[in-house]
Measured scan of single mutants.
Amino acid sequence: QTVQFNGLEYHFPNPEEAEKFAKKVAKELGGEVRVKDGRWQID
């Protein structure tokens, strides 16, 4: 599972970890999490 933001990609072994990370980062950055092409993106 991949999380993308600021032009970087973070890879996680399972979707739960990816989701948790994506939501944490979005909260800290005040961004929005969305899934695109099977990847988590933070904008």
Results as ranks from 00 to 15, higher is better:
residue 43 D to F: 15
residue 38 G to V: 01
residue 16 E to D: 10
residue 5 F to I: 13
residue 33 V to Q: 02
residue 39 R to A: 11
residue 21 F to D: 01
residue 26 A to T: 05
residue 29 L to H: 12
residue 40 W to D: 03
residue 22 A to Q: 02
residue 43 D to V: 15
residue 16 E to W: 12
residue 40 W to S: 01
residue 30 G to K: 07
residue 22 A to G: 01
residue 22 A to W: 04
residue 39 R to G: 07
residue 24 K to R: 12
residue 23 K to P: 00
residue 15 P to N: 08
residue 1 Q to I: 11
residue 17 E to G: 04
residue 27 K to D: 10
residue 28 E to I: 09
residue 33 V to H: 04
residue 23 K to W: 12
residue 21 F to G: 01
residue 2 T to A: 06
residue 11 H to D: 05
residue 36 K to V: 15
residue 20 K to I: 11
residue 39 R to H: 12
residue 32 E to C: 15
residue 7 G to T: 04
residue 39 R to E: 07
residue 3 V to P: 00
residue 23 K to D: 07
residue 16 E to S: 09
residue 37 D to L: 03
residue 35 V to Q: 09
residue 9 E to M: 13
residue 23 K to G: 05
residue 16 E to P: 03
residue 28 E to Y: 10
residue 43 D to R: 08
residue 4 Q to K: 09
residue 4 Q to Y: 15
residue 42 I to R: 00
residue 8 L to P: 00
residue 34 R to A: 10
residue 29 L to R: 05
residue 11 H to K: 08
residue 38 G to P: 02
residue 43 D to Y: 15
residue 35 V to D: 05
residue 22 A to V: 07
residue 39 R to N: 09
residue 3 V to G: 01
residue 27 K to M: 13
residue 39 R to P: 03
residue 14 N to F: 05
residue 42 I to G: 02
residue 29 L to D: 05
residue 26 A to G: 05
residue 28 E to W: 12
residue 7 G to E: 05
residue 18 A to H: 00
residue 3 V to W: 01
residue 19 E to N: 04
residue 20 K to D: 10
residue 25 V to Y: 06
residue 9 E to A: 07
residue 30 G to R: 06
residue 12 F to Y: 02
residue 15 P to C: 13
residue 38 G to N: 08
residue 21 F to Y: 07
residue 3 V to S: 00
residue 38 G to E: 03
residue 11 H to F: 13
residue 14 N to H: 06
residue 18 A to S: 01
residue 31 G to H: 07
residue 16 E to F: 11
residue 6 N to S: 07
residue 39 R to T: 12
residue 21 F to A: 02
residue 5 F to W: 12
residue 21 F to I: 02
residue 27 K to A: 13
residue 23 K to H: 13
residue 37 D to M: 03
residue 12 F to R: 00
residue 24 K to P: 01
residue 30 G to M: 06
residue 9 E to K: 07
residue 35 V to T: 05
residue 1 Q to T: 14
residue 14 N to V: 04
residue 42 I to Q: 02
residue 31 G to P: 00
residue 19 E to G: 04
residue 36 K to T: 12
residue 43 D to H: 14
residue 2 T to K: 06
residue 24 K to T: 09
residue 6 N to F: 08
residue 29 L to T: 14
residue 4 Q to H: 13
residue 5 F to K: 01
residue 29 L to I: 13
residue 13 P to G: 09
residue 16 E to M: 11
residue 33 V to N: 03
residue 43 D to I: 15
residue 35 V to L: 15
residue 23 K to M: 12
residue 11 H to S: 08
residue 41 Q to R: 06
residue 19 E to P: 00
residue 7 G to M: 04
residue 7 G to C: 14
residue 37 D to H: 05
residue 34 R to E: 07
residue 8 L to G: 06
residue 31 G to Y: 13
residue 40 W to G: 02
residue 8 L to R: 14
residue 43 D to Q: 12
residue 13 P to K: 11
residue 42 I to Y: 04
residue 31 G to A: 13
residue 22 A to M: 04
residue 43 D to N: 11
residue 3 V to M: 03
residue 25 V to L: 14
residue 30 G to V: 03
residue 21 F to K: 00
residue 7 G to N: 07
residue 18 A to M: 02
residue 13 P to T: 13
residue 10 Y to E: 02
residue 9 E to V: 14
residue 3 V to D: 01
residue 6 N to G: 09
residue 26 A to P: 00
residue 18 A to Y: 02
residue 32 E to F: 13
residue 39 R to Y: 14
residue 39 R to K: 15
residue 7 G to P: 00
residue 11 H to N: 08
residue 30 G to C: 05
residue 7 G to L: 04
residue 15 P to Q: 10
residue 15 P to R: 12
residue 28 E to P: 02
residue 27 K to V: 09
residue 39 R to W: 07
residue 1 Q to W: 15
residue 13 P to Q: 11
residue 32 E to V: 14
residue 27 K to I: 10
residue 26 A to R: 03
residue 36 K to F: 08
residue 1 Q to R: 11
residue 21 F to P: 01
residue 28 E to S: 07
residue 12 F to P: 00
residue 23 K to I: 12
residue 40 W to C: 06
residue 19 E to A: 07
residue 38 G to R: 02
residue 1 Q to V: 11
residue 24 K to I: 07
residue 17 E to H: 04
residue 43 D to M: 14
residue 2 T to R: 06
residue 28 E to T: 07
residue 28 E to Q: 09
residue 40 W to F: 07
residue 12 F to S: 00
residue 4 Q to T: 13
residue 32 E to Q: 11
residue 28 E to L: 11
residue 2 T to C: 13
residue 12 F to G: 00
residue 42 I to K: 02
residue 36 K to D: 08
residue 6 N to T: 02
residue 5 F to N: 01
residue 24 K to M: 12
residue 30 G to S: 06
residue 42 I to P: 02
residue 24 K to D: 09
residue 16 E to A: 11
residue 6 N to P: 00
residue 33 V to C: 14
residue 17 E to C: 14
residue 30 G to E: 05
residue 12 F to E: 00
residue 10 Y to G: 00
residue 30 G to Q: 06
residue 17 E to Q: 08
residue 38 G to C: 09
residue 13 P to F: 08
residue 34 R to H: 14
residue 8 L to M: 13
residue 35 V to M: 14
residue 13 P to D: 13
residue 19 E to H: 07
residue 32 E to T: 15
residue 13 P to I: 09
residue 36 K to H: 12
residue 26 A to E: 04
residue 28 E to M: 09
residue 4 Q to V: 15
residue 13 P to R: 10
residue 33 V to A: 15
residue 29 L to Y: 13
residue 42 I to H: 03
residue 23 K to T: 10
residue 19 E to T: 03
residue 25 V to I: 14
residue 11 H to Y: 13
residue 6 N to I: 04
residue 21 F to H: 02
residue 16 E to V: 10
residue 32 E to L: 09
residue 1 Q to D: 10
residue 13 P to V: 09
residue 8 L to Q: 13
residue 11 H to L: 08
residue 18 A to Q: 00
residue 5 F to A: 05
residue 15 P to G: 08
residue 39 R to S: 08
residue 9 E to Y: 11
residue 9 E to P: 02
residue 26 A to K: 03
residue 5 F to T: 03
residue 43 D to T: 15
residue 3 V to C: 07
residue 26 A to M: 05
residue 42 I to C: 08
residue 15 P to L: 07
residue 36 K to Q: 13
residue 22 A to N: 01
residue 11 H to R: 09
residue 25 V to H: 05
residue 14 N to A: 05
residue 11 H to Q: 07
residue 40 W to T: 03
residue 35 V to A: 06
residue 36 K to M: 10
residue 5 F to D: 01
residue 36 K to G: 05
residue 38 G to M: 02
residue 36 K to L: 11
residue 42 I to T: 03
residue 14 N to C: 08
residue 19 E to L: 09
residue 36 K to I: 14
residue 11 H to I: 08
residue 9 E to D: 09
residue 9 E to T: 14
residue 37 D to C: 10
residue 10 Y to L: 08
residue 34 R to V: 15
residue 19 E to I: 06
residue 13 P to H: 10
